[in-house]
């Protein structure tokens, strides 16, 4: 009885088991990739509907101000409805804006690993009038950008999430713009961080993480 073939069987079984386990574990539910997952157990204060029109000329191209800055309160579930206005493919993509500086025009966005595409080209039909929905909850106050990855030069605008005023915000969309200098009584000290940051080697700066928005964007209070 030659059971030597068991060796090959064992090898195949091990490889199969490894493959199955990896496939299984890597298909664990996450918040993106397979569409936005509503985080269970999160308390939202309410739902806010926000409709935007997708046009290659710019967001809301034929509906008032082009590329409007959206203001959202913290902890609300924002339901985006994207209505197509032309027969071109679009996406709705969000990311934090770590290079935000008040009073400057928005020219670039943070692409890459951290961006979250709420509405993909596949969800849109390139038929004017068609709409797609997706929702997102902003956990952290701060500055975000939203854009279309197909037309990032024209369809690019800001979102500001107001952390401090979230308690008093009603269910209306637009709250007050964030006063970037609120609570800062040390503005006379200019920004000591810039000089301090010069001590960093350039490789550290080149991969600035999400948290760095605080250093670069705002005049921080010195405790």
């Amino acid at each position: 009885m030659n059971k030597g073939k068991l060796g090959a069987v064992y090898g195949i079984v091990i490889v199969l088991l490894i493959g199955m386990s990896l496939t299984f574990v890597l298909s664990a539910p996450t918040s993106s990739g397979g569409g936005l997952l509503d985080p269970a157990g999160l308390k939202t204060k309410g739902t806010i509907d926000q409709t935007i029109y997708a046009d290659a000329g710019g967001w809301n191209y034929s509906h008032g101000a082009i590329n409007p800055t959206l203001y959202f309160p913290l902890d609300y579930k924002i339901c985006f409805t994207v209505i197509e206005e032309d027969n071109l493919p679009h996406t709705l993509t969000l990311n934090k804006d770590s290079k935000y500086a008040p009073g400057t025009a928005l020219t670039t966005y943070e692409n890459g690993a951290t961006a979250l595409t709420l509405i993909t080209t596949g969800q849109l039909t390139q038929i004017p009038g068609h709409s797609a929905k997706a929702s997102y909850i902003f956990f952290q106050p701060g500055n975000y950008t939203y854009w279309c990855t197909v037309h990032p030069t024209t369809m690019l605008a800001r979102i500001q999430v107001n952390g401090t005023a979230s308690g008093s915000a009603a269910t209306s969309i637009v709250s007050q713009p964030i006063n970037q200098n609120s609570g800062n009584h040390h503005s006379s000290q200019s920004n000591p961080l810039i000089s301090a940051l010069n001590h960093f080697d350039s490789s550290s700066l080149s991969i600035l993480i999400k948290t760095d928005q605080n250093i670069l964007a705002r005049d921080l209070p010195v405790f």
Partner: peptide
Amino acid sequence: WAWVFTKENSTGIHTCTDSLTIH
């Protein structure tokens, strides 16, 4: 997922998220 630093002094309450500047 953030560290929130809060300090209260005579000029009010200051809050910083994920960064801290001290003397």
